[in-house]
Design a protein around this nucleic acid. Structure first.
Length: 673
DNA sequence: TTTATACTAAACATGC
DNA sequence: AGCATGTTTAGTATAA
């Protein structure tokens, strides 16, 4: 009789939910994807154009200097020169340019991703980095084109001037030398950029197969990245095969500036130890090797030389040092590469600053919107303006009946979109409908931790199943047990999304609690509390990785490797980020993602092993103590127990049951406590 | 196509 | 009677 007392509220919720739930997920997802594919990327383009322009000027000067220097040695250097010693190098340019064009598209796509806020802040940043890398290439091409034109002009002018043949030839050689220098540098730069990106993918997977990366690669968003990758790479290789023109010099500009009169001066900005080494010349190298020995050399990792564009395999550190000294000695090439690297770093820093700003704006925007009653759909809007309309139409069959009753209604459908925001979402390929948590062992805790602010402020449906969320709530509690009401509170506290449609999701929570064996109701003095039977919970999770011990070990190590990365990411992207980007994250969908992905996989493995053998996971986290539950020996997911989680936990349960009050919509009654 | 899982809705029960 | 809490069933959607 009274059961439907809640229905009154429910009426709202259900109506809304219907539209959103179930089938709509797909729609949203689909729309998301589509949305991303088309669209323009204004912001980036602007920057690129400006940059190219400015840099062009400076680059010219530098190039001229180089030209002078090279006049004597240019023949000798002949890395690629001999072949290209033909008369009209300029002609070759268009080819490469043409080959590069495909890239232009991808940055736009990425831009749209940004606009849609499909990604988490971290992801956004990394994506932008990648985008920027592409920009650089575009700039290079533009610049090089112009250079070519100028050169040709010069040539023509001089020829018209009617110089002596000898003179002409001299000029020609000069131009050629210059040309070669340009080409060389450009190539280097391109190589460098690409290698940076590639390294991002390669280095992170130490020894193991593509397993941990797979989710990244396959994620819908990553998929595009991959494509982007392919384009870039193919373009790159194509250029290489065509063997020529790359615009590189532009990079030399800003930092090198025109002032640099000599090679050494060109080197300037000895940020990195490498730079210092270079500028000081060979004698110093030994000392360098020593000092670098202590901690891993930034140019050496995973048995590969990480010198931009090198990637030579070095079995051990010694051989690496040899290689470094022999292959990357102080010469024009290294100098140029160094310069390029400096430029890249600068660019990244610049971009980072911009992105940070943007992120800030986004967050504020979301926050503001989410607080507004009607604005609720806002965050979603961003995600899928398309989605909305689409879902509206498509969902109509379901949602129509319930219709407008509630203001909440619009929100739900969209919600799925934002879920895309999460790192984890990046892993999932298809429809967003899927809630990763269980199925994919997504590190829910870390996801929540990473996007905590976002979830709190934006009415975005978390991409996790109710079961996962409930479990998370319980595990986060100091006692590892919560009353139903406390679970409610956690939901509303952690997710803006759950501040609406209370009847619906609460019902779902209760339903899940009852339905899943993993949730155990324990009678308490105070009443009944809910705990998690971790064993049961793990049982319902399919193992992705069938028990290949070696594999699992690998994953464990990688996991250990990644967690700090992730943490670092969260902590600050600023300073640390740069080395990270250059070495690991470029061209790769987010460090956080990677970490998550690896953890994800790891979890699968760990869980697998764990459920069979209780020992396994390192009982490091306080979280693991599952007091009330039977599962003491069964530690939580290692990753969950670790950094991110602890962050969340500490942040959360302290204030406990009072903040919920703020949520007007939500008649949360913590009073009972 | 089948199956497992997840979500939503709702009916029903119980206790305060 | 009203509400919170639990349990259970049904329908639907999605992914594998």
């Amino acid at each position: 009789m009274m059961q439907e007392s809640g229905t009154e509220t429910k009426s709202n919720g259900s109506a809304i939910q219907n539209g959103s739930s179930g089938g709509n997920h797909l729609l949203e997802c689909g729309s998301l994807r589509e949305g991303r594919s088309n669209g323009e990327a204004p912001a980036v383009d602007v920057g690129a154009a400006d940059l190219a322009h400015v840099q062009q000027q400076q680059a010219l000067q530098v190039a001229r200097q180089l030209l002078l220097q090279q006049q004597q040695q240019q023949q000798v250097s002949g890395l690629k020169s001999p072949k290209r010693n033909d008369k009209q190098p300029a002609l070759q340019v268009p080819v490469s340019v043409a080959m590069m064009t495909p890239q232009v598209i991808t940055p736009q796509q990425m831009q749209q991703i940004l606009q849609q806020q499909v990604l988490s802040p971290q992801q956004l940043q990394v994506l932008l980095q990648q985008q920027q890398a592409l920009m650089l290439q575009q700039q290079l091409q533009e610049f090089y084109k112009k250079q070519q034109e100028q050169l040709q002009l010069q040539l023509l002018q001089q020829q018209h001037a009617g110089k002596q043949p000898k003179e002409q030839q001299q000029v020609a050689t000069q131009q050629l030398a210059f040309q070669q220098q340009l080409l060389q540098m450009q190539q280097l730069q391109q190589q460098h950029l690409l290698s940076l990106q590639r390294q991002g993918l390669l280095t992170i997977q130490p020894g193991q197969p593509a397993l941990p990366l797979q989710p990244l690669a396959q994620g819908m968003i990553p998929a595009e990245l991959q494509q982007l990758w392919k384009e870039v790479t193919s373009a790159h290789t194509a250029e290489e095969t065509t063997g020529n023109n790359h615009s590189s010099l532009d990079l030399t500009t800003t930092c090198v500036s025109s002032s640099a009169p000599s090679k050494t001066s060109l080197i300037m900005n000895p940020h990195a130890s490498t730079n210092g080494q270079l500028s000081v010349h060979t004698p110093k190298r030994e000392s360098l090797s020593h000092e670098e020995h202590s901690h891993s050399h930034p140019l050496y990792g995973h048995g590969v030389c990480k010198w931009p564009g090198c990637e030579a395999v070095c079995e051990d550190f010694q051989s690496f040092l040899k290689h470094l000294n022999s292959e990357h000695a102080l010469d024009d090439r290294s100098t140029a590469q160094c310069r390029v690297q400096m430029q890249v770093v600068q660019q990244l820093e610049l971009q980072l600053a911009k992105d940070k700003e943007r992120l800030q704006a986004m967050m504020t925007h979301l926050h503001v919107k989410s607080t507004e009653p009607k604005a609720a759909p806002q965050p979603l809007n961003l995600v899928s303006s398309v989605t909305l309309s689409k879902s509206a139409s498509e969902a109509s069959p379901q949602s129509l009946p319930h219709t407008p009753t509630t203001p909440t209604a619009p929100i739900t459908p969209v919600t799925q979109g934002p879920s895309v925001i999460t790192t984890t979402s990046m892993h999932t390929v298809g429809p967003i409908r899927r809630r990763y948590s269980d199925k994919y062992n997504v590190p829910i805790s870390s996801d929540i931790a990473q996007n905590q602010e976002f979830y709190k402020n934006a009415e975005v449906r978390p991409p996790f199943t109710y079961a996962s969320l409930i479990r998370q709530a319980i595990l986060e509690s100091p006692e590892k047990q919560l009353t139903l009401n406390e679970i409610y509170n956690w939901f509303t506290r952690m997710f803006a999304y759950f501040r609406r449609n209370a009847a619906t999701w609460k019902n779902a929570v209760r339903h899940n609690l009852s339905l899943h064996k993993c949730f155990v109701r324990v009678e308490n003095v105070k009443g009944a509390v809910w705990t998690v039977d971790e064993v049961e919970f793990q049982k319902r999770r399919p193992q992705k990785i069938s028990g290949n011990p070696s594999l699992i070990k690998n994953m464990q190590s990688s996991h250990a490797y990644c967690t700090p990365l992730n943490a670092a990411l969260q902590a600050s992207m600023a300073e640390n980020s740069i080395p990270l980007y250059t070495t690991a994250s470029m061209g790769n969908p987010t460090l956080g993602n990677l970490a998550s992905a690896i953890r994800e996989e790891l979890n699968g493995a760990m869980e697998h092993t764990n459920s069979n053998e209780s020992d396994s996971s390192p009982g490091r986290s306080p979280m693991q103590a599952v007091h009330p539950v039977h599962v003491k020996e069964e530690p939580l997911d290692p990753e969950e127990a670790e950094g991110p989680l602890s962050l969340v936990t500490t942040a959360n349960h302290s204030p406990d049951f009072d903040h919920d009050r703020d949520y007007e919509d939500e008649p949360v009654n913590e009073d009972m406590e």
